[in-house]
Design a protein around this nucleic acid. Structure first.
Lengths: 257, 257
DNA sequence: ACAAAAGTGTTATCCTTACACCCATGT
DNA sequence: ACATGGGTGTAAGGATAACACTTTTGT
C-alpha cells in the first residue's frame, strides 16, 4: 500500500468521527534525569504539536484516548486520565494546520475543510515508562519524539496552554497520581525517585528526610544492591509493592508540598 | 407573548448552537445547616435533572456556563469551574427526554430530533450563596428548586454520576476551593463555618481546634457580637478578609483531611 | 443558680526540618 | 587513604488532637 492509499483510507473514515470533538494527549516520561513530553512534528509547515486524534461515533472518550496513545507509543495500559477540556472560540486561531496552496494542503483539501470547524478538545494526561515506549509518527507527521520539558518548542494552536495545564495538574495532584509507579522502571534507586519528585516540584528536597519518608510509607520493597561503576557506596534497588502503593494512593502519597 | 411563541423563539435558535455539545451545572448552596443542590423538574415525564444548556457557535465554554447559571439563579459572578467532561456512548441511554406520543413530545419534535444525537457534556461546578439566588425554571421545566444533598432524587441520564463526581471534587479540593467565601453570607459564626466543613467532609471536627486553626490562618475579621435568642453566650460574627483569603487559597486553606 | 454553647488553655504526640555521623566502594 | 555518594541518627520546632477550664447568656 503506498502513501496515497494509506491517506485515502484515513480520509474515508472522516465521517466516522464525531464532528467538532478532538483529543489531545500530554504524554509524560522520565529518563531518570528529567521529565520529557512526547511531541509530533507536522509535515505541513513543520509545526510542533501534541499527539492527538478524533473520536469515533461509536467509541467512548477514554477508549479513543487510549487508542490514540497506543498508536503513538505502543503502550497499552498506562496511566491515562482526562484533565481538562479546551473549547474556547479562538483556541485554534493562531496557525492554519493546512495551507491549501502547498502540495500537501491541496492533496488533503477534504480533511482541511473538515478541520475548519470549531473543535472542542479533551486534554488527557498520560504517564508512561519512556523505555518501553516506541514513538511512531502518524501519516501526516515527520517525527514523533521525546522533548525535555525544559525545552518545549512553540506548539500549534493552544497546545502550549494544554501542556502547561497538564503540568500544573501534575504538580497539584502529585500526591494522588501514580507518578513513581508509572514513570520509573521496575527497579530504581532512591536517588532516582528523589530526582523525579524534584523535577516535578521544581525544588530540592532533603535527601535523608526523603528517604525516611518514603520508606516509612511502606510501599517500597528493597532488593539486592546495585553494582554501579561509581566511586562510592552502591545504592539499594527498590521496587513498588503495587498493592500497598495503590492502597495508599487513594489517601495521598507523600504529603509533599 | 404566549408560551407557543416563546418556545418558537427558542426553537429557531437550535441551529445557532454547537451540535453534540452541552453543559451541565452542579450548583451547590448552603443554608447554614446542610448542603443543597439546584435541580430542575422536566415537564415531560417529570424527570429530575441538573440545570444545563447548550453552547452558541460564537460563544466560549465558560461564557455559556455562566449564562446558563445566571438564567437559573440570577447570580452573576459566582465560583464556576469546569470539573469533568462526560462523553460516554451510553450516558443518555436510560431515559428518553421527550416522548413523541405525548402532546409536548409531538409539539417539540424538532428539538426531540436534535437531541437524539450523541452529546458530549461539560460538567461545571458552581458554589453560590443560596440566599441571593432566585431559582427560575426554564420553559420546559415545571420547577427549579434546592434539594438537600442527602436526598437527591433519581436524575435523568447520567446526571447522578455527574453530581457525584462534582461532590467528590469538592471533597478532594476542599483546601483549594473558595467554599467559605462562596457559600456563606457576608457575616457568619464560627459554628456555621464549622458545620459547612463537617457537611463537606462528612465527619465531625473538634470545635476548639477548628476555631484556633481558622483564626490562626488570619483571613477572618471578627465583628461585633451577634444578639441571638439562644440561652447561651452569644457568638462572634466573622467575615472574610477577601485579600488574605484569596492569597492563602492558592497555597491551600485549612489543611483539612 | 443552672444549662447550654462560646471562647481559650494545656498537654502529649507526631511530623517536619536541618543537620551530623558513619559506611561502602573505586581510584 | 581518600573522595564520593549512600544509609541512618538526633534534636529542635511546629502542628495536631484530645480534653479541661472559664465565660456569657436566657430561663
Amino acid at each position: 500500500m503506498d502513501d496515497n492509499e494509506k491517506y485515502g483510507e484515513w480520509f474515508g473514515d472522516l465521517s466516522s468521527f464525531l464532528p467538532g470533538v478532538s483529543i489531545d494527549c500530554v504524554i509524560i516520561g522520565f529518563d531518570l534525569n528529567e521529565l520529557n513530553i512526547l511531541l509530533l512534528k507536522w509535515k505541513e509547515g513543520g509545526h510542533w504539536m501534541l499527539p492527538g486524534g478524533f473520536v469515533h461515533k461509536d467509541e467512548d472518550m477514554d477508549h479513543a484516548a487510549s487508542r490514540i496513545l497506543e498508536e503513538r507509543t505502543g503502550i497499552r495500559l498506562p496511566y491515562l486520565k482526562q484533565f481538562h477540556t479546551f473549547g474556547d472560540l479562538d483556541r485554534r486561531a493562531n496557525v492554519p494546520l493546512f495551507n491549501p496552496v502547498t502540495p500537501l494542503g491541496a492533496q488533503f483539501k477534504e480533511m482541511f475543510d473538515w478541520l475548519e470547524q470549531r473543535f472542542i478538545s479533551l486534554g488527557y494526561l498520560s504517564l508512561v515508562d519512556m523505555r518501553s515506549s516506541v514513538p511512531a509518527p502518524d501519516l501526516l507527521s515527520e517525527t514523533c519524539i521525546w522533548k525535555p520539558l525544559k525545552s518545549i518548542p512553540d506548539l500549534i494552536y493552544d497546545h502550549n496552554l494544554i501542556a502547561n495545564k497538564a503540568l500544573e495538574q501534575i504538580r497539584n495532584q502529585i500526591n494522588y497520581l501514580p507518578i513513581g509507579i508509572s514513570l520509573l522502571p521496575e527497579k530504581f534507586t532512591m536517588k532516582q525517585l528523589q530526582i523525579l519528585y524534584e523535577e516535578i516540584l521544581q525544588k530540592k528536597v532533603d535527601r535523608a528526610n526523603f528517604q525516611k519518608k518514603m520508606l516509612k510509607l511502606g510501599f517500597l520493597d528493597r532488593h539486592e544492591k546495585q553494582l554501579t561503576g561509581g566511586a562510592h557506596k552502591a545504592p539499594f534497588l527498590y521496587a513498588f509493592n503495587r498493592e500497598k502503593y495503590n492502597l495508599l494512593l487513594e489517601k495521598g502519597i507523600g504529603y509533599m508540598s
